[in-house]
Amino acid sequence: MTDDLAGGYDLVVFDLDGVVILIDHAIDGAPEAIGALHERGTAVAYATNNASRRSAEVAALLTGIGVPAQPAEVLTSAGASAAVLGEKLPAGSPVLVVGADALRDEVVDAGLTPVSTLEDKPVAVVQGYGPEVGWRLLAEAVLSVRAGAMWVATNTDKTLPSPRGPLPGNGSLVAVLRTALDREPDLVVGKPEPGLFTTAASQSHAERPLVVGDRLDTDIQGAVTAGMDSLLVLTGVSGPADLLAAGPERRPSFVAADLSGLFRPAADATVPLDADEAGGWRVTRDDDTATLDGEGDPVVALRLLCRATWNGVPVSGLSGSSEQARDLLAEWGL
């Protein structure tokens, strides 16, 4: 066991989009970080809400960007959703698939029959992200659910990170059905539900897993629900302002700028930082306001400020007294 953050865990479960990859390109430093874990013998798994690829496709993509991966290490919301339907429905049952071919293939592997219209009399609708999903298929899904079909969503991520900025995710498409039907899905399978994480831990026989993600509302909340420690990396969707405002159910154990934080002491990433000053920064609290002064690593300032906002100071009550502090808060949108 090493003295860094990752050394305290026997399994690291990575989210993919915004942590390891952006669409199909590696995030800087991700292949090297995961390669270092492999070299020291730490088990690795990947848990993704993106339902547009199957496990084998994801493993091939990762291998292609320099991250050797096996299909068994990859857990997708598409596979998990199809497995749930396979347990609930008789073999061969018609299921209307709203999503990519990967989701349709998972439905087939679960022993069910994928269909695409109300006339096929689907007994369930499964909805996952697919870049080609359009109005016509969404309309068939609405009609099918209204006719009594069970509605299962692979996940409800509102956005999907990309090099061009956040794009509409499956949650945005789920919102179309939610608006038309005026109700929620019968079941949401992916994160923040803990199933992907607990399955990964079970498969690896891990006693102390660490979840690494970029979204507070899925990755981190799922880890909290599963009773697992988590690391938020600031390379994807959730940013400093989101972390400062996070409720208890969405608070990570650690925060770092990127995956290099795995190889620094855990004390350098623990959040909140239980101190008034550190790393050139100082936070002064006065009732429901807190002032940041000094200069240094932005993540250290963030950890100090989380102590204030997680203990009663509203985000609107934060201010900076040094030029560097004011610039940093402005950069965070505060």
Results as ranks from 00 to 15, higher is better:
Thr2Leu: 11
Asp4Tyr: 03
Val13Phe: 02
Phe14Cys: 11
Leu16Lys: 02
Leu16Pro: 01
Val20Leu: 11
Ile23Gly: 01
Ala33Cys: 09
Gly41Thr: 14
Ala45Lys: 05
Ala45Gly: 11
Ala56Gly: 08
Glu57Phe: 02
Ala60Phe: 00
Thr63Arg: 04
Pro71Val: 11
Val74Ala: 06
Thr76Ile: 11
Ala82Glu: 11
Leu89Thr: 07
Leu89Arg: 06
Pro94Thr: 00
Val98Gly: 04
Ala100Ile: 04
Asp101Ile: 11
Glu106Tyr: 01
Asp109Cys: 11
Leu112Asn: 01
Pro114Val: 02
Pro114Thr: 03
Pro122Arg: 01
Pro122Leu: 00
Val126Thr: 00
Gly134Arg: 14
Leu138Ser: 09
Ala139Lys: 14
Ala139Arg: 15
Ala141Trp: 07
Val142Pro: 02
Thr154Val: 08
Asp157Cys: 03
Arg164Ser: 13
Pro166Lys: 01
Val176Asp: 06
Leu181Asp: 02
Val188His: 00
Leu196Ser: 05
Phe197Cys: 03
Pro209Tyr: 10
Asp214Gln: 09
Asp219Pro: 15
Ile220Tyr: 10
Ala223Gly: 14
Ser238Arg: 05
Pro240Trp: 06
Asp242Asn: 13
Pro248Arg: 12
Phe254Asp: 01
Leu262Thr: 12
Phe263Ser: 11
Arg264Phe: 07
Pro265Gln: 07
Ala266Asp: 01
Ala267Asn: 15
Leu273Ser: 03
Trp281Thr: 05
Trp281Phe: 04
Arg282Phe: 02
Asp287Lys: 15
Cys306Asp: 06
Ala308Phe: 09
Thr309Val: 06
Trp310Val: 09
Asp327Trp: 05
Leu334Gln: 12
Leu334Ser: 12
